[in-house]
Design a protein around this nucleic acid. Structure first.
Lengths: 350, 350
DNA sequence: TTTAGCACTCAAGGCAAGGGAGTGCTAAAG
DNA sequence: CTTTAGCACTCCCTTGCCTTGAGTGCTAAA
C-alpha cells in the first residue's frame, strides 16, 4: 500500500528534523515546516496513520514522533535528496587526498581516517575480501653469519620482510639455494598446504638448511594469515561519545568495543554495489542493531577493492554521509586510476 | 613536617578504601577498619589535620574524605605495600607471553595489548626514544621491467620494504649498481642530509637511474620518519568507560581522544628508571591532569628499550597495577634476554 | 589526648504541584 | 469525505519542599 504524497512529505520532515534536533517532532512544527498549508490537527491524523503503518514511533503517548527503522529506510530509498557535496566539503576532501599515499595497508588506513574526520563519525576501512593469499616470490638476503632477511611478495603484490636468525651459520650460497627451493616449491601455495610440502622436502635437504627453511616458512605463514584476515582499521571511535544517543556509557561501550575489537565482523559490501546503507536492525551484528552503517567501496588498481564504512546512530545524517562518502570513494578510485600522477597501485609500505 | 604514624595509617586506610569503593570515606568506617582502638571522634580530629595539611580533600562539608594528589603521592611513596603478583596473575601473564612474538613493532603493540588486558586499564606502548635513525643497508630486487622492491634495513635493525614503480624500464644490473651507490653514499646518513647528498650525486648519474634513485630515497625518508617518531600503540581505551569517574562523556571523550590521537605526547621514562608513577597534576599533559599514569620499561635486546604506560583515574589501584606491570616488564626483559628460546631481538615484521 | 554527645550541614531521594508540549477525539465547517 | 478548531487528557520534566541519613565540627568532660 503506497503512501500518499503528503504522508511522505510528513515523513521526510519528521526524519530530517529528528536527524537535526535529536528530539521527537510534534505536529505543530510539522505543519509550520510544510508552509502552513494544513493545520496541525490534520497532521495529527496523518501522524496517527504513519504510526499505525510502522513508519513512525512514539516514545510515549504525549510525545512527538520519531522515525522507525522502517521509516528511515523509506526516507533513504525515496525521500532523501541526493545531496551533492558542497564546494567547501569537496575542497576539504581534496586537501585530505593531497598527501602522499603509499602502500596498500597505509592507503586503506589513511582512507578510513580521512573519512572519519570528514563525516564526524567513526569509520572502519578494510580491503575487500578475496580468498586465500599465496606467495608470488621469495628473496633471502644475507645479513651476517647467523641472520638473513626474508622478503616475501604475495600474489596481491604486498611485500613484507623481516630479519630471521639461525643458530647455525648460513652463507650466501646456501641462501640462494634455499631461495630457489622456495620459489620452486612454495609459490602459489596456500597456507594449508605448506605443512605437507615442508614435510616432503625436509628429507632431501642438507640439514644446515633446515632451520632457515622452517623459519622462513613460519614467517610466510604469518604473512599469509595477516593478509588473509584482511586487517580492519578503525578510527574516530571517540566521535561516538559526542552523539546524544551514546551518552549512556553502557551503550557507548558496547559499540566502541565492537569497533575496537580487531576480530569484529563489520558489514561488508558485495561486488558491484557501490554503496549501501544499513539501518538499525538491518544489521546482522547484534551490537549494531540500533546503529546504522554506510559502506562504500573504491578501486585500488589491479582489481583490488577497498571498503570504507561509517558507523553512527540510526539518527545519523544519511544524506550528508552518503554524499561525502561516495564523493570520497569516487575520488579515490579516480586517483588510483590515473597512475601517472601517483604510482601507488598495489605496492605496500609494510 | 613528618606525619605521625597514626595519621599515616589513616591516610592509608582512606586511600585504599577509596580506591576500592570510589566514594568518600567517613570517620566511622576508618575507626572500625583500624580495629576500633580509637573512636570516630578521634579520627575526625586527625582527618581535619590531614585536610589542613593537604593530604585529603572533602567534596563538601558533610561528606567523607578523599585522597588528594598529594595524599596519593605519599601513599605511593611510603604507605603502599609492594604487592607481589599472585600465582594466578603470574600464570595469566606467562600465558599471554607464551604466544609467538616477532618483529619490533608488533612486539611493542602486543605488549601494550597484553598489559591493558592484564590491568584492565587502557595502555600505550612505544619504543624508548633514541635520536635520529639511519639506514644500515639497502637492497633492490628486480620485479619486472618497470618495478623493483626496495628493502631498507635501519641501524636499529628494523627492515621495511616496498614495491616501487618507475616509468622507464630498469634492469637487474642497473639496480645492482644503484644499490651499491646507495650503500656507499646513503648509509649512516640522517634524513636531513639526504637532500644535499642527492643533489651532489644526480649530476654524475646516468639519467635512467635518476628516477629509481629518487623513489628509493623518498621511500627511505618515509621509513626513517616513521621509525624516528616512535609510533605509539594504544589499546583498551574502552576500559575507561567502565570507570565511574568517566561516566561523564565529556571527560571520557577528552582522555579517549588523547589516547587515540597518534601525535599525543604521553609520558615517557628516562633511562635507568625502571618504573614511574605520575599522579594527576604531576602530569605535564593538560588532559592527564586528573588521571594517573604508570610507566615501565623493558629491554628488547641490542640496547633497545620498550615503554609501556597504563592510564587510569587517579583512584586507580596503584599497588596492583605497579605489581603487574613491573612483573610483566621484567618477564619481557628476561624473555628477550635468553635468545635461545625465541630469536626476535631487533628484527621487524613490517 | 581522647571521647561522648550533640547540633549542624549537605547530598540525595521521595513527593506533590505546576507547566508545557503534544496528543486524541469530537463536532462543526468546507 | 476531508479538514479544522476546540478541548480534555496524558505524560514528562522541572521546581520546590521535606525527610532521611551520613558525616562533620565543636564542646565539655574523662
Amino acid at each position: 500500500m503506497e503512501l500518499t504524497a503528503r504522508k511522505k512529505q510528513i515523513l521526510k520532515v519528521v526524519t530530517e528534523r529528528y536527524i537535526d534536533a535529536a528530539e521527537p517532532v510534534g505536529s505543530k512544527y510539522i505543519a509550520q515546516a510544510m508552509g502552513g498549508a494544513v493545520s496541525s490537527a490534520t497532521i495529527r491524523n496523518e501522524l496517527a496513520d504513519l504510526v499505525e503503518l510502522g513508519y513512525l514511533e512514539q516514545p510515549h503517548t504525549s510525545a512527538g514522533r520519531v522515525p522507525s527503522p522502517k521509516g528511515y529506510r523509506l526516507y533513504v530509498n525515496e525521500l532523501m535528496e541526493q545531496r551533492a557535496v558542497s564546494d567547501q566539503e569537496a575542497s576539504q576532501i581534496n586537501a585530505a587526498l593531497g598527501g602522499r599515499m603509499r602502500g596498500l595497508d597505509s592507503v586503506i588506513a589513511q582512507a578510513g581516517q580521512m573519512v572519519s574526520s570528514i563525516v564526524s563519525y567513526p569509520a572502519y576501512a578494510v580491503a575487500a575480501g578475496k580468498g586465500a593469499v599465496t606467495v608470488r616470490r621469495f628473496d633471502l638476503l644475507p645479513v651476517d653469519a647467523n641472520s638473513f632477511i626474508a622478503v616475501v611478495m604475495t600474489a596481491d603484490s604486498r611485500v613484507k620482510s623481516q630479519i630471521l636468525r639461525t643458530e647455525l651459520p648460513v652463507d650466501a650460497e646456501q641462501l640462494t639455494a634455499l631461495a630457489n627451493l622456495l620459489n620452486t616449491h612454495f609459490t602459489g601455495v596456500g597456507p594449508e598446504e605448506t605443512g605437507e610440502k615442508l614435510m616432503g622436502l625436509t628429507a632431501q635437504l642438507p640439514p644446515e638448511l633446515f632451520m632457515p627453511l622452517s623459519l622462513t616458512i613460519e614467517y610466510t605463514r604469518e604473512v599469509m594469515d595477516q593478509s588473509a584476515k584482511n586487517q580492519v582499521f578503525t578510527t574516530g571511535q571517540t566521535q561516538l561519545l559526542l552523539q546524544p544517543e551514546f551518552q549512556d556509557p553502557a551503550r557507548a561501550n558496547e559499540l566502541m568495543s565492537l569497533l575496537t575489537d580487531k576480530k569484529a565482523d563489520l558489514p561488508v559490501l558485495d561486488e558491484n554495489t557501490p554503496m549501501q546503507i544499513l539501518i538499525g536492525p538491518e544489521n546482522v551484528n547484534e551490537a549494531l542493531k540500533d546503529a546504522s552503517v554506510v559502506v562504500a567501496s573504491y578501486d585500488i588498481g589491479e582489481n583490488m577493492r577497498g571498503l570504507i564504512g561509517v558507523v553512527g546512530p540510526t539518527r545519523m545524517d544519511y544524506a550528508a554521509v552518503a554524499a561525502r562518502l561516495s564523493y570520497f570513494a569516487e575520488s579515490l578510485t579516480k586517483m588510483f586510476g590515473k597512475n601517472n600522477q601517483l604510482p601507488p597501485k598495489e605496492d605496500n609500505i609494510s
